[in-house]
């Protein structure tokens, strides 16, 4: 189990692995927004939580098709399927590896990016907290989408279309936590909802991902 996790992270960090790609994309989105809406700090502060969450979502999406596609292309996915790992464990580990290489850097960098969008300082903590709680759901849902589209040539666009609607609940409650935090309001309720969504997807979706992967490998 540990070996697969270590391998996936090692592959992500080495040449062509795409580590940091999501982070760089996030940075560019955050830098582009003030150019689009103007440098008014008041306006930026209002839209910052939403922009930061949408940015995080899109940069997470960017690396989803790599979760299974690379292993599919070089044949390792077949070999992993015959290995003594249950398919459910395999998809969970893949999601964890994706989260560690995409979600965690986003969480850590989010206060810096919040500064670029002049989010009030009170919002930094809630923003990072909401991302820390929400990005695992993004990775797990994304792994499900990647399992659905594995084996399709140029499946990336279809993957986005399938996955983005499923991201909506996470986005709604995640951005709400960040917005309320920035305004100094109490954010316990959306945080609890966000945590519920995340833990629900972690508990249920690996079974669905494993099932579709089995069908796709036939």
């Amino acid at each position: 189990m540990k070996a697969l996790l270590v391998r996936d992270i090692r592959l992500a960090v080495r040449a062509g692995g795409g580590f940091g790609l999501g982070l760089a994309f996030f940075l560019i989105v955050v830098v582009l927004v003030p150019f689009g809406v103007g440098p008014d700090n008041g306006v930026l502060a209002v839209i910052a939580p939403g922009i930061l969450w949408v940015g995080a979502l899109l940069s997470c999406l960017l690396s989803l098709d790599r979760i299974f596609a690379l292993d599919w292309e070089d044949g390792s996915l077949d070999l992993l399927a015959t290995a003594p790992l249950p398919m459910e464990t395999l998809v969970t580990l893949k999601a964890v590896a994706h989260w560690l290489s995409t979600g965690v850097p986003l969480v850590l960098a989010s206060p810096l990016f919040a500064l670029l969008l002049s989010l009030p300082a009170a919002g930094y903590g809630p923003l990072a907290l909401s991302l820390a709680l929400g990005t695992p759901a993004l990775s797990v849902i994304g792994t499900f989408g990647a399992a659905l589209t594995v084996g399709l040539k140029r499946g990336g666009l279809l993957l986005s279309l399938l996955v983005l609607p499923l991201y909506m609940p996470t986005l709604i409650f995640g951005a709400e936590v960040a917005r309320r935090g920035a305004q100094g309001l109490e954010f316990g309720v959306p945080l609890a909802m966000l945590a519920g969504i995340t833990f629900g997807t972690i508990a249920l979706l690996p079974f669905a991902s494993a099932a579709v992967l089995r069908v796709n490998l036939r």
């Binding site: 540990k2 080495r14 040449a15 062509g16 692995g17 070089d74 390792s76 070999l79 003594p84």
Partner: peptide, 24 residues
Amino acid sequence: YAGHADGIKTTLTVRENLEFWAAV
């Protein structure tokens, strides 16, 4: 099982590739 594709990760060394499968 060994199919047409070898399931080799090109950015890992030969030893790392084998050690991964041995661990799995």
